[in-house]
Design a protein around this nucleic acid. Structure first.
Lengths: 210, 210
DNA sequence: CCATGTGAACAAATTCACAGCA
DNA sequence: TGCTGTGAATTTGTTCACATGG
């Protein structure tokens, strides 16, 4: 039973997120108990994998019965670190930034968007998606004030690296990057690059005739 | 040498996209030739993996020298199906849809956004991101007119399944889904679900004070 | 009984290490 | 010499199948 940060693979972790969402859906339907097999059939998952994944973090199931939906959901919620509240700062308030601002403050109360910065003087001071836009130059101050712990980069490609450095300098150690520029991960900074072009190119490959 | 659609793993494929971008960056700098090692060091990739991945599709390299940047980029471009032009239809023109419309029509001429639909009568007829928004009910007609081959779902969660069904009915067989509702893949329809909540939850896990 | 939890078997992906060629 | 291309070794991830326990 590792349950420690270092030795959990991202794949397992992402599946836990999926399980959590499946359990929430079941809970909403009033389902009290579910077996790994039912869960698998319902949501196209492998039952063996569900059991392996969950067993890694504790004995959540009851033999002969299955898993209790609500308690398991609560345990996964806790396990994924969703009991702590996280504060996001959105960098770049173009359409993508605004979309993310309106989209990422969900999920019970685990995440909230606390600030937005933009380098366009036109946008600074405006209220967009419920946030007063601050100048990029104030990023450090903004992070200090709001205790933001996750930075979301939604700026054009060429502005990504400077913003990244600003975020790191401001002490933000988790960064979600939507700019089409791959940013380096380091020992202290965790970066998740989300490059939508890769998804499109994957589709293009499979659309290829022959 | 498989080079066929079926037996290429998505992981390899996504790395090919990455290599292509790295090569483009080098080409822009005027670099003519690069070894797998240089490429690896420059972009944090494994040189052995680069060689394995590329060797799968042909003998691109020259022993003792490395790879020619431009020709290799051209080969990957072709290989990924980027020589065919693809036409995207964006479903849902909220901020996310507009962001994607302005973001996905890039990459030489491989992808272009040819249409947008929305169910909000306020938006229909408006020109957003250079596209006249059409009503969702016209989706089939729109797809016929524009020969769109990739659908992008950027609607709220509860509208995702109906739109998905409309796209499939209209003959679109590749779908990129940004709604937080996992859509089923079938033998004939390829779906890529992009759930940003999973990325956030991954960050939350690693932020957890153990 | 029935479904979990798990070692053992299997499969996939990655890395190593080196033969072979420009 | 220097770097590719590639089998072999290793690591990582998934599935199987069953002993175990409520």
């Amino acid at each position: 039973m590792p349950s420690s940060v270092a030795d959990t693979s991202p794949l397992t972790l992402n599946r836990l997120s999926v399980y959590l969402r499946c359990l929430r859906a079941l809970a909403a339907e009033g389902v009290k108990t579910v077996s790994s097999q039912e869960l698998g059939e319902r949501f196209n998952l492998s039952s063996a994998q569900i059991r392996k994944d969950l067993a890694q973090f504790g004995d959540f199931g009851v033999r002969g019965v299955g898993y209790e939906v609500e308690p398991l959901a609560a345990a996964l919620h806790e396990l994924l670190g969703l009991s702590d509240q996280h504060r996001l700062v959105i960098c770049g308030m173009g359409h993508l930034g605004r979309a993310l601002a309106g989209y990422l403050g969900f999920n019970d109360l685990s995440f909230s968007v606390v600030a937005a910065v933009d380098s366009d003087p036109e946008k600074v001071g405006q209220e967009l998606a419920g946030l007063v836009v601050r100048p990029t130059g104030d990023l450090r101050q903004v992070v200090l004030e709001t205790h933001a712990d996750i930075g979301v980069i939604a700026v054009p490609s060429d502005a990504a690296v400077p913003i990244y450095e600003d975020l790191v300098a401001a002490g933000v150690s988790s960064i979600l990057n939507f700019a089409p520029t791959s940013l380096p991960e380091s020992a202290t900074v965790r970066v998740k690059n989300v490059d939508m072009r890769i998804y499109l190119e994957e589709m293009a490959f499979f659309l290829k005739k022959s």
